[in-house]
């Protein structure tokens, strides 16, 4: 029961504190068993295999619905789960730290408030990233297996119908292209970016909110409003031409700058219909996500820096 003599003080860098806080938030959320939803996702992916509409006329349409369903259902479920996880997890962290008074013990250490906020946000994003990675892996595995099966069926039917070898090879290439490809990964990245923006918004709401429920409800509301952002921007642009009042125009402009246009992140529908996602689109989404994450993190810091806990 002996205690050593006090030694000189230690000092952590901003980065190491943020990493410590993010890993802590990640562990906290994992131990709350949030990954259980992955079982539900697996069921959805497996279930999507059995929805093959009997509408095929020739080898080219055999199994096409199945591949489309797997992509559509999986990406849809990924988008839904990721948004729900990010909002609920972010809404849970800060209000809970205040309610449980664990925040005192953290802020009583030499931890700047910006480190705390960024660390918490990074923890949620790490959780979403790992969740998306696991779901992505499940989707890719299911799609890969099913693509092979579909190609086999198509080949059998095409040979039976006396298709020439070049036509069979061409069909195989076409089916392969609608299977696993990098476009899918771009869609998953778009989902992650959208969710990162949503988590940052939720973080800033949680800095002035008093409860998890309020933060969750307001965040979901902003999420839905974000899907109509394009309309506000349109109103501003048309208003300039039509001579709408300056106040309304600036209100619409402010709204469109402050609330992200979540419709832009919805690339899944286009992808399922085999519309390509270009590098330029991905670049724009990355820039946009960075802008909003930074904006809302700074807003959260501005509110939280003077908050009395």
């Amino acid at each position: 029961m002996s205690e050593s003599t006090p030694t000189p003080a230690f000092k952590a860098s901003h980065a190491s504190r943020m990493v410590t806080l993010s890993l802590h938030a990640f562990t906290q959320l994992v131990r709350m068993k949030v990954f259980y939803f992955l079982a539900v996702f697996a069921v959805i992916v497996i279930g999507s295999n059995f929805f093959d509409m009997a509408q095929h006329q020739g080898p080219e349409s055999v199994g096409a619905n199945v591949l489309r369903n797997i992509k559509s259902w999986s990406l849809g479920a990924m988008a839904l789960f990721a948004v729900v996880i990010s909002i609920v997890a972010t809404a849970l962290l800060l209000p809970r730290d205040i309610e449980d008074r664990t925040l005192y013990t953290v802020l009583a250490k030499p931890v700047p408030r910006i480190d705390y906020l960024v660390g918490r946000l990074m923890g949620v994003l790490l959780l979403v990233f790992v969740s998306l990675a696991v779901m992505d892996l499940l989707m890719v595995a299911a799609l890969h297996l099913r693509t092979g099966m579909v190609m086999e069926m198509q080949e059998k039917m095409a040979v039976g119908r006396g298709w020439p070898e070049e036509a069979i090879q061409s069909l195989k290439q076409e089916t392969l292209a609608s299977g696993v490809n990098w476009q899918l990964q771009a869609a998953v990245l778009a989902i992650f970016l959208k969710v990162a923006v949503m988590a940052a918004i939720c973080l800033s709401v949680s800095t002035f909110s008093t409860s998890t429920l309020f933060t969750t409800v307001v965040s979901f509301l902003i999420f839905f409003i974000g899907h109509f952002q394009a309309d506000a921007l349109d109103f501003y642009l048309k208003g300039v031409e039509a001579g709408t009042s300056t106040f309304s125009q600036y209100l619409a402009l402010g709204f469109s700058l402050f609330i992200p246009n979540f419709q832009l992140f919805n690339v899944v529908d286009g992808l399922v219909q085999n519309q390509p996602i270009t590098l330029l689109m991905v670049g724009k989404l990355v820039m946009m996500a960075c802008y909003y994450v930074l904006l809302y993190t700074l807003l959260a810091w501005w509110i939280f820096s003077d908050k009395e806990v």
Binding site: S13, R31, T102, T105, P110
Partner: peptide
């Protein structure tokens, strides 16, 4: 009435706070 993070063990709790302080 300190309420520490319930999901951490005693050892993990000290490691977490220690790392925040730069240890």
């Amino acid at each position: 009435n300190p309420y520490f993070y319930k999901h951490l063990t005693g050892g993990e709790t000290l490691r977490f706070y220690g790392r925040l302080c730069g240890l």
